[in-house]
Simulated scan of single mutants.
Amino acid sequence: MGSRLTIGEFATLTHLSVRTLRRYHADGLLEPAAIDPFTNYRYYAPEQIPNAQVIHQLRRLDVPLQEIKRILATDDAGRREEVIAGHLSQLEAELARTQAAVASLRRLVHPEPAEIEVDLPTLPARTVAAVKSTVHLQDSLAWYDEAMAELDAAFPPGERTGPPGGHYANDLFTAGHGLMTVFRPVRTPRPSGRVEVMELPPVELAVTVHAGSHDDIDVTYGRLGAWVATHALAVDGPIQEVYRVGPRDTPTAADWRTEIGWPVFRLSGKSAARESSS
């Protein structure tokens, strides 16, 4: 083929159609290396193959033309990589939101299991190691990961006496920002960096277990809330979660088990109940 590639050869090597390459040229995204002044045939250089493929993938991801031009115009490879990585992060976040919405809708249409089990334990006062901060809801997952990493670093497995948990203020859900607290029961709680010693007061809870991925955990929240509205008196207090098995224990989402606790005042003497979704 030599050092110049015809548009047909270039199309074969990049798996892009001739029509697509002509459109990239017209849009100013990918200029041919040379155009014959007599025949107007387009010729491309082998070095243009990676750029053609990058453009194609960015267009498939609906990156605007002007943004692609900006990415290709920079001679700073690090800056180019940074811009592309930013777009990938946005797309991954959108994909995660889509997957979570699909999982929730599927479970709402076909509830599994048809019933949820609810226990009504009374938890005693406890002293734990904790990290807390006011957080925006969209930042909550990243904040949780950072806070748990601090707790794990401060208290290795031999010092832990139970699974980690979290308290989430109602404002986090109703206003989009609120107090988040993550904690670990440990043998000897002590401050370290952002980690502080916290006293958890005694509390009565309505508790159910969400099995599997957190994508549809909002459905379990809703069903537990419906149970509380029917069987108990909800009281002010943060929603509580305990991560019996979570992402920090296994990457297999099907094995995750998250206890969700809703602060209540009991209306009956029952210690457990079942709620039908019908």
Rank of each mutant, 00 (worst) to 15 (best):
G2F: 00
S3D: 11
I7D: 07
I7R: 00
E9D: 00
F10S: 11
F10E: 10
F10M: 11
A11N: 02
A11I: 04
R19S: 10
R23K: 02
A26D: 13
D27Y: 10
L29P: 12
L29G: 09
I35R: 06
D36L: 08
P37V: 00
P37T: 05
N40Q: 13
N40C: 04
Y43A: 06
A45C: 05
A45Y: 08
E47L: 08
I49S: 05
V54I: 15
D62N: 13
V63Y: 00
V63T: 08
L65T: 11
E67W: 05
I68C: 02
R70P: 09
A73F: 12
E94R: 15
T98I: 05
Q99L: 13
L105H: 07
E112H: 05
P113K: 08
A114S: 13
E115K: 11
D119Y: 11
P121K: 07
L123S: 05
A125I: 06
R126S: 09
V131W: 01
S133Y: 06
V135I: 13
V135N: 04
V135C: 07
L137A: 13
L141E: 15
E146A: 15
E146M: 08
L151C: 03
D152L: 14
A153S: 09
G158H: 03
G165Y: 06
H167T: 09
Y168E: 14
N170Y: 15
N170G: 11
N170T: 14
D171G: 00
D171S: 14
F183D: 12
P185Q: 14
V186D: 04
S192I: 00
R194V: 02
V195K: 05
V197H: 03
P201Q: 11
P201C: 11
E204G: 00
V207I: 10
V209C: 12
A211R: 06
G212C: 05
H214L: 13
D216P: 07
I217M: 08
A226E: 07
A226P: 06
A229P: 06
A229R: 04
A234V: 04
V235R: 13
E241I: 01
Y243I: 15
W256Q: 03
T258S: 13
R266K: 14
G269Q: 04
G269R: 09
S271Y: 02
A272E: 09
A272D: 07
A273D: 15
S277L: 12
